[in-house]
Nucleic acid binder design. Structure first.
Lengths: 91, 91
DNA sequence: AGTCGTTACATATTATAGTTGATAAACTTG
DNA sequence: CAAGTTTATCAACTATAATATGTAACGACT
């Protein structure tokens, strides 16, 4: 299950349904057209606040952006989050 | 509408409903107890992948973590996303 | 073919998400 | 009440999300 792809598909579908271009949504949301393009193509892992603000600009519920859309899932696994970082404290 | 607080409330409620400690959820999810504590208290702005992985560890749908929970919204506005960054290119 | 509108691609930078370890504070239990 | 358990808090670090800018590629239309 790839959340980036799911959210991307939902976003693209909802935007197109409203006959909006990415540029128009960009202006409404304050995100750049280039960023929205990446999100729609599943290349970005947005935060929940970003999700909400995009939904707001689209006048839809943020839930609509994360709901399963009935598309067949690919066999590729969900991209994982970041790996291990610093020790958190100077030893 | 503060997404961080909403997700935090949903997470805490669902976790407690399953009688899980943050430590146990931490072990199941691979996130640290400290991080989950921050998320539950609305102090973190997780990405959609993080959202999904927490939901997976809780054996609930990720949608359950973002659904409105009927709590009265505070008058404080949604925290905004990040501000302007670099110029993107050496001029 | 040329033009226009739209989307995709590239790059460098900054802000912040997520990690880690330590530990204080709060809560629960016997 | 003391001890054990759970959650909250702090701080420093690394990885990455988001920004800004430029522009290539694509599709539609004349």
């Amino acid at each position: 299950m790839d959340m980036r792809k799911l959210v991307g598909r939902n976003l693209a579908r909802l935007r197109q349904a409203q006959k909006l271009t990415q540029e128009e949504l960009a202006m409404r949301s304050g995100f750049s057209q280039q960023y929205l393009s990446d999100v729609e193509r599943g290349l970005k892992n947005p935060t929940i606040i970003t999700l909400y603000e995009i939904a707001l600009a689209l006048s839809v519920s943020h839930v609509a952006l994360v709901e399963p859309d009935g598309m067949a899932e690919e066999t590729a696994p969900q991209p994982k989050r970041r790996r291990a970082a610093g020790t958190g404290r100077i030893k």
